[in-house]
């Protein structure tokens, strides 16, 4: 089923005759007719006319074949890249209108990231890795480190803040990454193939944790994945193709 929604950004003008409509629930993140091309000399259309609404506390999964633009879509949601057409609206604000510093501030205060390759900094302890977003946001070092310990405990790694990244298993690394993504209480977590480097058992543990923690904190999550098992934990799942985004059954 082709998923299309009305553009909430262009509300109808209230009629003096009809009663005023109830104020709409503002989406946390909304993609409006978003399109993206790749390549400079001979540009190729990656996708076009994508509409998507992400509400607070919801977990969305996006599946698709390699090269269909799943990661690019996440980049657009994070303000790391800009669409060639359409709008990406976060908290009512068009990301295209944000400057570099404002976009960076949005990411460090309201978005958390989970990557397939974990991207933990190898020379930092687990606690330092997790505290990094807080420090980037200007939290005092002591408070940030204490909060990082709490966040590690929340992902099942209590008391391990002093350990080195190198001693972790894949599943543990992704738990640390999840702790880092949630430590600053973001409104949205963007997860790019969070189980791509994990064995099925570890993957199941990480997914359960992702579901549990985002729900507990009321955090929205958009996850792109190849795995239909992973997509199954989502509230809603979509398939990305050249012709756009199609909602599929989450199971």
């Amino acid at each position: 089923m082709r998923h299309r929604r009305a553009r909430s950004a262009t509300l109808p003008v209230p009629s003096p005759i009809l009663p005023a409509p109830a104020p709409p629930v503002t989406a946390l993140l909304e993609l409006v007719r978003v399109g993206k091309r790749v390549g400079h000399s001979r540009p190729r259309r990656l996708f076009t006319a994508i509409d998507l609404r992400v509400d607070a506390g919801s977990l969305l999964a996006i599946v698709g074949e390699s090269g269909c633009g799943k990661s690019t879509l996440l980049n657009l949601m994070a303000g790391l890249d800009r669409p060639d057409e359409g709008q990406v609206v976060f908290g009512g604000e068009d990301l295209a209108g944000l400057g570099e510093a404002q976009a960076a501030r949005l990411r460090r205060e309201r978005i958390g990231f989970v990557f397939q390759a974990f991207h933990l900094l190898p020379h930092l302890t687990l606690r330092q890795n997790v505290a990094l977003p807080l420090r980037l946001a200007g939290s005092p070092s002591r408070a940030a480190l204490a909060r990082a310990d709490e966040s590690l405990a929340e992902v099942g790694l209590p008391g391990r803040g002093d350990e080195a990244v190198a001693v972790l298993s894949g599943g543990e690394s992704q738990r640390v990454a999840l702790a880092r993504a949630l430590v600053h209480r973001p409104a949205l977590v963007l997860a790019d193939e969070p189980t791509g480097n994990l064995d099925p058992e570890s993957a199941a543990g990480v997914l359960a944790l992702l579901r549990e923690r985002t729900r507990e904190h009321g955090v929205a999550c958009v996850m792109v994945t190849h795995s239909t098992t992973a997509a199954a934990i989502a509230d809603r799942a979509f398939r990305l193709g050249h012709d756009g985004l199609t909602e599929v059954a989450a199971t």
Partner: peptide, 27 residues
Amino acid sequence: MSARGARSPRVGADPLAAFILSGLRAA
């Protein structure tokens, strides 16, 4: 993961300071 990751990191240090030092300690 490279072997250097096994070096014991500085415990309790500020992550930003640790990031600066990591660049120096890496080489």
